[in-house]
């Protein structure tokens, strides 16, 4: 029986996505096999936990939030190529809006797929060329002159990221921020505990957010 267009998309999309998953895992796997260097559980697990506790829920919610906007084909492609919030979703929405198409329809699905595919091609090529151009500059990255810059990636990233989120949800931010400032200033050796404190911060802010939401203080 001939598959419908949607069925065909799901059929091919699944294989492509699982293939992508296999390839993404192959990269660190091959590196570990060839170099003989494997992560140990005592180093992998805390880093993984601190990362997954935030990004597993975030990326899961993104599936439910973005897939209605992206359509079937767009979803199978966008969640492989990434950069959804800043690239793929806006590209898909813009393309549908430009043609006056309703989202969630077959026409919307098709146009979204075209937009996401086009965006993916150009972004992938730009990143590939960018990476190739950076290769000869790699020794510069190790230069002692640049060391203060790389030593301060954390404040550089979280200063900008932090102020955006804190201003957006200051009621949620206050308690975890005050707690962390006091903890890190006054607990001896606190600098070595940031890996553990990320999940603690997440628990605190989720608890605060939940309480405020239930009381109707935030929407």
């Amino acid at each position: 029986m001939k598959r419908t267009y949607q069925d065909q998309l799901h059929f091919e999309g699944r294989y492509f996505m699982l293939g992508a998953l296999a390839l993404f895992i192959t990269a660190p796997l091959m590196i570990s096999i060839v170099t003989g260097v494997w992560p140990t559980f005592d180093k992998f697990l805390p880093g993984f936990f601190a990362t997954a506790i935030i990004f597993w829920p975030v990326t899961t919610i993104e599936v439910f939030t973005f897939s209605p906007m992206l359509g079937t084909g767009g979803s199978y492609l966008a969640f492989v190529t990434g950069n959804l919030t800043n690239l793929k979703v806006p590209a898909a929405l813009n393309a549908q809006d430009a043609l006056g198409i309703e989202k969630g329809t077959e026409k919307g699905d098709v146009i979204s797929t075209i937009a996401v595919a086009s965006s993916s091609i150009i972004t992938t090529l730009i990143i590939l060329v960018g990476a190739l151009l950076i290769i000869p500059l790699t020794p510069l990255l190790e230069s002692p002159t640049l060391k203060p810059a790389f030593d301060n990636i954390i404040p550089a990233l979280f200063g900008a990221l932090g102020i955006v989120y804190i201003m957006k949800r200051w009621q949620v931010a206050i308690i975890p921020l005050i707690f962390m400032i006091i903890f890190f200033l006054f607990v001896p050796g606190s600098g070595g505990l940031v890996g553990i404190m990320v999940p603690v911060g997440v628990a605190l802010s989720l608890a605060t957010a939940s309480l405020l939401y239930k009381k109707g203080k935030i929407k």
Binding site: I53, I54, V58, G162, P176, V194, V198, G201, S205, A209
Partner: peptide, 12 residues
């Protein structure tokens, strides 16, 4: 809130 949890830890 998830992001703010991470942000608060790194700001601290």
């Amino acid at each position: 809130a998830l992001f703010l949890g991470m942000i608060s830890a790194f700001v601290g």
